[in-house]
Every structure is written in C-alpha cells, then in structure tokens.
Design a protein around this nucleic acid. Structure first.
Lengths: 334, 334
DNA sequence: CTGAAAGCGCTTACAG
DNA sequence: CTGAAAGCGCTTACAG
C-alpha cells in the first residue's frame, strides 16, 4: 500500500497539517519536527498525491498540447521545445493528436477540460470558432504556435510567413533566377497557404518579374501530395530554373521527382524549401531552406502559457525570426 | 464559475448521489429524474471533474510514456500509435522526454507517480535497474516498446533485431554482394547494438563469407554521428560493394557522404537501412530498408498496457514482424 | 510552533 | 427509486 500523509503524520507524531507544511516549505514548525517528519517521509518513501493536491489547489501542473499530427517531424520539434521548457517549470504535457477532422479536436478539448489542465497550446491548425468557443468555456489560458487567429485575445508565436516567403523568393532572384515557380499550400489556407503565396507573388512583382499564375502549383504540404505537384511542374513548365517550395517535404518531393526524370539539382533546377526540418540536412543534395526555429517556438509558447497561468496577466504575441539556411540546392545563374 | 455536481443536484432537485448515478450510467433512478438531470447538465454545461473522480477511483485514465528523445522521427511514430489507441480507450498520454541522462528519467518517474498515472510505457532505452526499482515501487503496469529487459515480469513489444539484421544481410548476399560492411550501433548496446551486429555476423558466416571485424563501423544511430562512420568506411574499405546500416539515418548518411565523394548509390555501392522512417521514401534515391512497424508497435504496447490496467492480469510479450521494403538503393551484382 | 476541522468535487456503501 | 453520510488525500484558515 502506498503511504499517505496520514501515515507519515501518525508515525511522526504530528498532525497532517504539520506534515503538509514541511512538504510545502511553509513556515510553522521547529527544526526538530521538520527533521523527524523528513525522516519519516524518507522511511515510508512517501510521495504526495498530486491528484488530491490538484483538487484543492485547482492546479494540475499539466498543460494540453493539440497537434494536427503528432507524427510529423514538424510537430515533434515544436513538441520537444514545449516539453523541455514545461518540464523545467514543473508542468507535464499531455499530447493530443487531432488528426484531420474537427470531431477529434472537440473530444480532446472536453477531455482536457475534465482533466482540469491549467492551459492549452494549440498548434498549426486554424482556430475554428467552434474550438474558440470551447476554449473560452474552459476558461484556461491558450497560446497558439505556428498559427494565429482573428481572436485578438489569443496570443501566438510564429514566424512571419509572408516575409519569409518574400525573402526566399528574393534569394532566388538575387541568384539570377527569373523563371521561378512555387509549390505552395492551398490558397484557402489562411495560415501556411495564402501568406506564403502572397509573399512569393509580391517579391516577383517588386523585382519586375511578371507574375504567371500557372507557375504556382498548390496542394498539400506532405511529400506524397507534393510529388504530383512536382511532376506537374516539371512537365508543364520546363523553362523554370528555380522553385520555392512552401515546405521541406515539398522541396524534397521536387528533388526526388527531378532525379527520377534525370534532372539534376541544382545544376538544372534550383530549389529552396521551408521549415528546416532535420531531413533538410539529410537531403541529397542538402536542402537550402528557410528555417523556422521550431524548437524555440515550442519553448516560447510554453513560456507564455505558463506565465499566463501563474500571473493571470495578458501576454503579447511574438513573431519569431526565420532565416535562410544555405545548403546545396540553389545555383547562382551566370 | 464552472458548475459542480452540487450545482446540478440543487437545480435538478435531487441529491448529488443521483446525479452521480446518471452520470455513470448506474441503475437507480426513474426515467423522469434521468431526463431532468440530463437537462440540467446540459443547461449548466456541466462537465465532471476528472481530478475529483480520480481521487476516489484511484484511476486517472492517463498513462505516461517515456522516450529517450521525443523529437526523433522514430519516437513520434511510436508515440502516434500509442496515442491513437489510448485515446480510443479513453486514456490520455503524458509524454516524457528523458533526454540522454538518467536523472531526467528518475525525475519523470517521480512526477508520473505523484500524478498517479495508471501505467507506463517505456521506449527504446535499456531499463536500468534503478528505473526498474522505481517502477516497481510505483506499483503500476509497465510495458516496454522497442526494447526489452532481463526483468521477466515486464512485457515488451519489439521486432526481432537479430533476425531482421540477419535477413537484411542475406538480402544483400542474395543480390550477389560479398564485400559487405555494416554501420552499426555500439556493441555494448544490448538493445539495438549487439543483436543487430550479431545477426549481421551470423548471416555472413552462414553464407561462407569471412568475417572481417574492421568492416563493422560502430557509433551512434543519428545522421551526424553516422556521417563520420560513413566517411571512414568509404576511405578505408573501397572494396565494399554493399553496406547494412542499423538505422535509416545511418544509411542516408552513407548516401550523402558517398554523393559528396562522387560515388553513386546503388551503382557503385548498395545500402540497406533499418526502421523505414518516413524519410526512407523521401531519400534520394529512395531507401531500401527493413521496416519496423513503429505505429503498430505503439498501438500494441498501449493495448497491452491498458489490458494490464483494467484486468490486472499478466500480459505476454510480443515479437512484431519486420519486413524488407525494396526501393532503389540495392543493386543486383552481375 | 501546532492541531482540529472544514472543504476541494466527486463515488459508494448503507438505509429507507 | 432516492438521499444522507463517509471518505478519497490533501491544504488552509482558524484558534490556541
């Protein structure tokens, strides 16, 4: 049987109140009683029950993290950052994989509420009104990571997608490229879709390059989805000398498809990716890409959330810096 | 203010006992009272407090998962499988990244104990005696995934590493290779190191190929660690025509290093990996590898753990099938 | 410096 | 079919 606070109180000949005090470093006991209490705790190998504690304190020291897909490299980097920071602050993380559909999200939100988490980090997905309402009803702090929302009260931490894409595109232009295509997300995606496409377009415009809509190949961010976009691109636009891919997986899909057709990167076609996942450096050739500081984004999000939890004061959103990582997939045109 | 069971009891003109009964689908109330109680619950948007519930039931419906590194692609696949299964069974997952050192593991074990998790899944690492003792003291079910241990009482789910390596090596041999090297883990690693190295050796022996110890390049499983092993291999053993890498990252490191030296895969050197992570198919060329069913391993582990939790009966370990995924990195020698 | 008591939000015998 | 009461393992005024 695990021992409880009563057991140690009894064995130490003090009240449970006293035990509780030494446990929580509150004042109110002699050095002597402290010593014996501590000794008994040791003897009984007593560990406080966080559940009982949470019932009173209304704090569970745990935070819920919602991801659209736990298994992607992107999410795990962010998660790692969150987890690391949170652990150092004595918070545990419960991970929730929301999959594609909204129903799982709502179910999870309910579970998190019942389990009385102290706060929630919501990642990558758009914060639908339904979710927002549920979150509001829960009455716990929320922070967004790698996404943002129109609900001004919800702080976020993310990169400036528009600007990052603009810079990626200019990078290509400065390397002498004029025939530039993009493999992007869906225009209808307000988070990782539209802003990146818009940044791409603007960079072209600002550099006097005529915008050709047919050079924007949209679709999903994953490798297999991008594979068809890349296939398409190579087939219909052979004049293209460089492409900006809105994710590393997309960029790598292009490299793979190109290789299959005997087109070499960067000699015949240049590519720049987006994310800087681990696989960017493992790519062959190593992928030039826009780095999002995913681990750090996780940390910052956890930091914000925890300070909202502990201080109840509003926290401000944060745009986190991206940067271009030059590897070997972009060639300078002569 | 969130409403409690008392609030609904009061508003429904019944006792909390009755509310509790309808909440838990226990017998003991008329259809009529059930209806009004349900209505009031709806009106108040009442949700039970799982913490209070847990205090009584001694069940928190949460399980702790310990990973050496949450961010690796390997762990996230397993985690995803665990999470999916567990969620369907109404369990939540708290993730614990144990990093490299043991101190973090012990700290986490303590947190998990205080938070009264119902069970623990321990992944990839060797179950040191210190951990085992702590786990025993916690008195909750444990299952191992992608690792095993000498403590017979702890069930595991994993692939047969020896056999998988043996088959990978034979695959190379059957393709006509005789000069075969291995990039492996540490011989001292009883989980993913020794068994794979031994399987490799035995396959060579059984096929009449003289074992040359200097063709086994050991080190860490990660890309950057393997990069030096690969460098070494290419430099010191140019006669090698095929290599068995004990992880996909190692295999990809070899491909990268080879490319850097103008050596083409599979034309000049063949490679087979191990794991079948997502990046194996994104590799360039796509990587032939031994697949571990990581997602499924996660599911099976969760399944076992949950049945230990709910039925208190002992569960049996499981060797899960691996298989060779043929892609484009192994050439048949003429 | 110390303890008795109330209470956190539930569940579960027990009694009717 | 229903409720009063005890209790899960703690914390926290309150009183001394």
């Amino acid at each position: 049987m695990k021992s409880t606070i009563k057991d140690v109180a009894r064995k130490a000949n003090v009240s449970v109140a006293t035990v509780s005090r030494v446990l929580n470093n509150l004042p109110g006991y002699s050095e002597d009683t402290k010593r014996t209490v501590l000794r008994v705790i040791e003897e009984l190998k007593y560990q406080p029950n966080a559940i009982a504690r949470g019932l009173i304190n209304k704090r569970t020291q745990t935070i819920g993290v919602l991801f659209p897909s736990v298994s992607s490299a992107f999410s795990s980097e962010v998660l790692h950052g969150i987890e690391h920071f949170a652990h150092d602050e004595n918070y545990s993380i419960v991970v929730c994989n929301t999959a594609e559909d909204g129903r799982r999200t709502m179910k999870y939100l309910q579970v998190l509420r019942e389990k009385q988490v102290d706060g929630i980090i919501f990642s990558s997905e758009v914060l639908k009104e339904e979710y927002y309402e549920a979150l509001k009803a829960m009455d716990v702090p929320v922070v967004l990571v790698a996404t943002h929302s129109e609900y001004k009260s919800v702080p976020y931490v993310k990169v400036d997608d528009w600007k990052a894409s603009y810079e990626a595109t200019e990078y290509l232009i400065h390397k002498g490229h004029r025939q530039i295509a993009m493999i992007g997300g869906y225009e209808g995606d307000p988070i990782a879709g539209k802003p990146r496409i818009d940044g791409f377009k603007q960079a072209l415009l600002d550099n006097g390059i005529t915008l050709r809509d047919e050079l924007i190949f949209d679709g999903g961010f994953r490798f297999d989805q991008a594979t068809v976009a890349a296939e398409n691109l190579l087939l219909t636009a052979p004049e293209v000398t460089a492409v900006f891919a809105a994710s590393d997986e997309m960029a790598i899909a292009l490299i793979s498809v190109a290789a299959k057709h005997g087109i070499s990167v960067p000699e015949q076609i240049s590519v720049i990716g987006y994310d800087n996942l681990k696989l960017a450096e493992m790519s062959n050739p190593p992928l030039t890409t826009i780095a999002q500081p995913l681990y750090k984004m996780g940390e910052r999000a956890a930091d914000k959330l925890i300070s909202m939890i502990t201080s109840k004061e509003r926290v401000v959103s944060e745009i986190v810096p991206h940067k271009i990582i030059e590897r070997n997939t972009v060639r300078k045109l002569p």
